[in-house]
Amino acid sequence: MSHLTKLSLIAVISIATTTVGIADPRPQGAKKAPPQEVANFYAGKTQSWSSCNGGGIYYGGGWQAQAYCKEDGESVGIGTWSISRNGRICHDLTWYWRDEDGSVKSSDKPVSDRNCDDIVMASDGTLWARWVHKKTEADAWWNLNRSESIRQGNKLKGKINRMRRNLGV
């Protein structure tokens, strides 16, 4: 399996595994979340990806996104995040890593292929998310307000900066 394929699989597993233990059905009466509410919730926060061994994604200012993953070697993702009119949050990352021969490799197109979460707002104002990928939707929803995988600040800054310096990206 190529490094690029593994990174794609990691992104799928990582987002899906953040819901383990806290997945629920969609809250009754929930509606698509207002895009500004979703942006306000994610901006300036790090979402951990359990399968990346201490990695995840940082949703930075100016719609910039940076990610780190340590699965079958270290890699760093650089790209953007966005919110659609219907409240869906997506990130597009180009991944960089050092190949076995020592050369720096990158994905030709975003590995995420539009990795997205649908976001809804319950009647009590809480935000709920469901991971989606390539038009296949997961069944489970998780309460973002209670999620331990999302924390304020760039918790990956040191790892990302080190990898970017190491790879020259």
Rank of each mutant, 00 (worst) to 15 (best):
M1H: 08
L4W: 09
T5Q: 09
T5V: 10
L7R: 15
L7G: 02
I10K: 09
A11S: 12
A11G: 14
I13H: 05
I13A: 10
I13Q: 04
S14K: 04
S14M: 04
I15N: 11
A16G: 06
T17D: 12
T19W: 01
V20H: 06
D24H: 12
D24Y: 08
D24P: 01
D24V: 06
P25Y: 01
P25S: 05
P25G: 06
R26E: 12
P27N: 11
G29K: 04
A30T: 06
K31G: 00
K32F: 08
K32V: 06
A33C: 01
P34A: 13
P34K: 15
P35G: 02
Q36D: 14
V38L: 03
F41E: 13
Y42G: 05
G44L: 06
T46Q: 02
S48M: 14
S48C: 01
W49F: 07
W49G: 02
W49H: 09
S51D: 05
N53I: 05
N53D: 13
N53F: 11
G56W: 11
G56P: 13
G56F: 10
I57F: 10
Y59T: 06
Y59G: 00
G60C: 07
G61P: 10
G62Y: 04
Q64H: 12
Q64P: 01
A67H: 09
Y68M: 12
K70C: 07
E71N: 14
E71F: 15
D72R: 11
G73Y: 15
G73T: 15
S75P: 02
V76A: 11
V76Y: 09
G77M: 00
G77H: 00
I78S: 03
G79K: 07
T80F: 07
W81A: 00
S82K: 14
I83R: 02
N86K: 13
C90L: 12
H91M: 00
H91G: 00
D92G: 08
L93K: 09
T94N: 12
W95A: 14
W95E: 08
E100R: 07
E100G: 09
E100P: 03
E100N: 11
D101G: 07
G102V: 00
S103T: 15
V104F: 03
V104L: 04
V104I: 15
S106Y: 08
D108P: 07
P110F: 07
N115A: 13
C116G: 02
C116M: 01
M121I: 12
A122V: 07
S123L: 15
S123V: 06
D124G: 10
G125L: 10
T126G: 06
L127V: 06
L127M: 06
L127T: 03
W128Q: 02
A129E: 07
R130K: 11
W131G: 04
W131L: 04
H133T: 04
H133P: 01
K135V: 02
T136C: 04
A140G: 13
W142R: 04
W142H: 13
N143Y: 05
N143W: 02
S147P: 03
S149K: 13
S149A: 14
R151Q: 15
R151M: 09
Q152R: 08
Q152F: 04
Q152S: 14
G153P: 04
G153R: 13
N154A: 01
L156D: 10
K157S: 09
K159A: 11
I160W: 13
I160E: 11
R162C: 03
R164H: 01
R164P: 01
R165A: 15
N166W: 13
L167V: 02
G168K: 12
G168L: 15
